[in-house]
Design a protein around this nucleic acid. Sequence first.
DNA 1: ACTAGAATTAGACACAGTGTACAACTTTGG
DNA 2: CCAAAGTTGTACACTGTGTCTAATTCTAGT
Lengths: 202, 202
Amino acid sequence: MVENRRTRRTQRALKSSLIELVLERGYDAVTIEDIAAEADISRATFYAYYRDKPALLTQIVLDLQGELAARLERLRLRENSYFSGEALRILFEHAEEERDAYRVILRGEGDGTALRIFVDTRTEAAKEIFLKRAEVTGTQFRIDPEILTRAWVGEQVTVLLWWLEPEERPIPAAEVAQVLTDLSVHGRMWASGFDEVPEGTF
Amino acid sequence: MVENRRTRRTQRALKSSLIELVLERGYDAVTIEDIAAEADISRATFYAYYRDKPALLTQIVLDLQGELAARLERLRLRENSYFSGEALRILFEHAEEERDAYRVILRGEGDGTALRIFVDTRTEAAKEIFLKRAEVTGTQFRIDPEILTRAWVGEQVTVLLWWLEPEERPIPAAEVAQVLTDLSVHGRMWASGFDEVPEGTF
DNA sequence: ACTAGAATTAGACACAGTGTACAACTTTGG
DNA sequence: CCAAAGTTGTACACTGTGTCTAATTCTAGT
């Protein structure tokens, strides 16, 4: 199975068919026969490329992460800053371009594996940045960086899914990214309009 | 199907069997026959209570949310404060008690429906509190409360799952809840050890 | 303690989808 | 143009699903 025009077409078709059908009917309601039919390919060929449905979905996340990682790497070479909110904007823009794939993944379709891969990869990336920043600036974490990272990725993923779901997104990518950065940087009380945390609370 | 000793036993057994087996082998690898066998019940009886596997899982989330809601309601009657981090502690304590059920749900096992129900319910609850607080204090949101809420729930869910996974939890419930509250209230830069946001960033 | 009704059972059924295999065919790249 | 790579249709055994039924066991209320 070398890289041909044909094989590429086949794999692309299978991936986008899965995405389309899953969004339409839900993961469990889609059979391999359905995917093959939608892709105009025989069921036998499906098995030439993927062991089963989960394998195809996993490949979709891996591809997506690969593309995202490439864009972030390009940014890193340009900017070399651990303080830019740029990375988040890139994530949201990428997600908008690949809206359907992201929706399938972030919804957790097909046992949660795809989502788990996505979250874990993002977590690793974020953790590295946080730790490197602390190292460079000599700053001491006030809370466990593990929790910090998990929380940060959790925010991203949840807001991302919410933002992607409607057909038209009223808020542009750059703007949600900025909002999320502001919230994360300044905290929830600031975001709620308080200038300081009210007395005798929390 | 009135509430008997027998029917209650049957339903409980089916629920905990599903949870146990899913944690052991993953949702898709568990058959209804497996669940019934584990619960010492015939497959026919399974169908007397639940249409299918998803229906059973959904019931599990609904039960859990019901119990959690009851505890939070009790708190609300006692405290009547919109500024307490108490609610979060209750969530973490509840999750620790029902660790296995929470893990199955938060992992997103069996198409993401159970997780979606969980997240949506939490989101509604959080949104109500945020809006009510703003109303009471007359505060103006600096960012869209919808995003604020989604992000907050996203943090909770992600950290919760991370915290629940290991067999023994090194950080007690009350403490993670406090950490999460601190982070959320003061923001990520504070949590990373910065006293103010560095110049020319974000 | 008895009994009507509720709950559970085993087993059979048709069915849909899976994963594998293979021989025949079409397309591709050099 | 042709050998190799890719694709196809078809068939197979198999697993699990959901429905049904007649027989059996348990429960609650008198």
